[in-house]
Design a protein around this nucleic acid. Structure first.
Lengths: 204, 204, 204, 204
DNA sequence: AATGAATGAGGATTCATTCAT
DNA sequence: TATGAATGAATCCTCATTCAT
């Protein structure tokens, strides 16, 4: 009756395009109006297509959201990995990772909004947590390496990792939203805050 | 027909109690299931009362939520102000304020969830931002005083303030949720991270 | 969120009446147009009430159907039990039970239609089978008693019971539908067919 | 645009095969999940072909169902005619016809299910009735011949015919479904029940 | 103050059918 | 012959809110 979740439909070029359009418009709308306030009708109407189109490409509104969510998390993580690729020194990797995080967040404020929302719904929260854990895990690796090398004081790497995540997103959100700082300046601020933080906190 | 918002109904003692029950149950449910997934029916059924009761005490579901939201923000702010009351040194005020923030957040994880959600809905976002600004403003005062006194390097106080907010909430959320640290330990960590952060970042 | 199935709503007199109206109209329409071809809208429109009314009284269209189904089966069974109450001789009980079955079926042709349909949907089939088994079980008791008393030849009582059920419903349906025979005449025919059948078949 | 119903498309060998596949899969699914719960998509997906294929071979889902229905009824009738071919004695023809009916029903439980359903939908009911009448008509001929020959007591042949139909299908359904009897045994039971029935009932 | 009942717009989803390629 | 894409009416159901009692 229902399609098996395991077999994503094979799409033509035109199909891929439609799918991408839907994905993009949905992301925009979800971020602007909220998930619940954006109806499937809003999305298809915004594209000027029939309602069935939505369900040709996605199993449900929920699944679509999950897909956006996961791809956002994946994208952020990738851009951080790209930023630190080939860098040897762990503290520099941390700094570059944080910077990449700030820039990504600044550029994708809408996606940040989505993640915030997702955290508050029972059906999406697990996915958010999984993503956060993955991000934290990356940072933990660098932090532990830095501690082992004596570059920063020993301490609870996992706790620090979550600290990094927090400063990055919240500071970025707040500052960029205010419009008084350009992303690069924000990045500088956040990076030094973070380095100061891990330097001091580990001691605690 | 409808009551003017300015003139809240005068309630008997019993009435106050009912109102408080509704407020409490709604908070719990909103936090557990999400705002949209919690219906007015859920709330009144959970209390075993008729549907009319809800509308006797509140104008609408939205107004109720707003009330919860504002009172949560007010409560956090108050507990921070209480914590620093009478403390002269600005850096200590910052430390105590952050600590109070951590403890409050740890104790009211549900309310944190509500604020996260509120930020993502057009109708609630302004209220959230207002609350955040008020909180940041408090911190800005201490930071500027500390800068003036030379206790910390000069810098963008407002930016730092948002940094403090971010570390506090995110680190607390993540660490308390994990259940590996008790709130006091988390507070120690967060405070030293913050102090390290403002020490280093302002320099930038 | 959803109401617990275990707690049927307490209804006022007016409420009971509404519920009964819905039940009756739904039965009629399901029988006349088929379950799938009758929409919830059809039902509430037929009563001139809003759509929510339906869901105030029933959890779903499916549950409503199930309720009709079970009450129909219960009703038939009761009318058979009433018919044989106090009769000592097992063969007479069989005859009277069959007769009662014919008369009930003749009078409730619509419900018969519903049972036929229910048998063809995965979600309803189990309920139908359960009802049929109960009916058959009643007959089995009389048949075995009759066999023990030597009133009819020994044989597979359960098989015969289903035979009785089959003749009763199908013959009645076909004959009453044709309109050439009144129910009493049909009952005579069916009863003697059945008695002849169990007399002969058991021997096999 | 649409084909005239009278001129079925001329198909290639490959075409015939496709059509047969569709017919078979549809039958299986309709019987297993119900007519309404089986979508055209289900059918074409089950065959791994595109949606257009369905409408190349059939005008509509309804027409397809009707075709299955009629061919089922035709098939049963034929197998009964084959069974009695060349038999002179009318009572033996009846017995053999009933037996053939039992065996066919046992072997095609799915089709039986379809007929049951069809009876409950306004759009299919006439077809079902027509088929039943044809079947009954066959039996009536034998019954009247038997009565004329004095082999069974005179009576309402048409009524008896419907009785035969009823016992056959219902007893078979119930017994075969239970799995306690093989079709041949069931056939013996049903045949003697029927003969007993017509012997006794006609007298009434 | 409180209740059960009612409203009805709105939401997600399904599905028979059509069509361009 | 066949495909993937598209249509859009129709379906079941939810829910904030109102109202008579």
């Amino acid at each position: 009756m229902t399609q098996s979740a395991a077999a994503p439909r094979r799409l033509t070029a035109r199909g891929e395009e439609r799918r991408a359009q839907l994905l993009e418009l949905a992301t925009t709308r979800f971020a602007r109006d909220g998930y619940h306030s954006t109806s499937v009708s809003d999305i298809v109407n915004g594209l000027g297509v029939g309602k069935g189109v939505f369900y040709w490409y996605f199993d449900s509104k929920e699944q679509l959201f999950l897909e956006i969510l996961k791809s956002a998390q994946r994208d952020l993580r990738r851009s951080q990995q790209r930023a630190i690729d080939g860098v040897d020194e762990p503290v520099r990797r941390i700094a570059l990772g944080v910077r990449a995080g700030v820039l990504w967040t600044a550029e994708h404020a809408e996606l940040r909004r989505l993640v915030d929302f997702a955290r508050t719904e029972a059906s999406f929260a697990p996915a958010v947590r999984a993503g956060q854990r993955a991000l934290a895990q990356d940072a933990v690796a660098h932090l532990e390496e830095a501690m082992a090398a004596g570059a920063i004081p020993a301490g609870d790497a996992r706790a620090l990792a979550f600290g990094l995540l927090g400063v990055t997103t919240t500071m970025t959100d707040a500052l960029v939203e205010e419009g008084r700082h350009d992303p690069e300046t924000v990045a500088d601020l956040v990076v030094s805050f973070c380095l100061g933080g891990i330097g001091a906190a580990s001691a605690g």
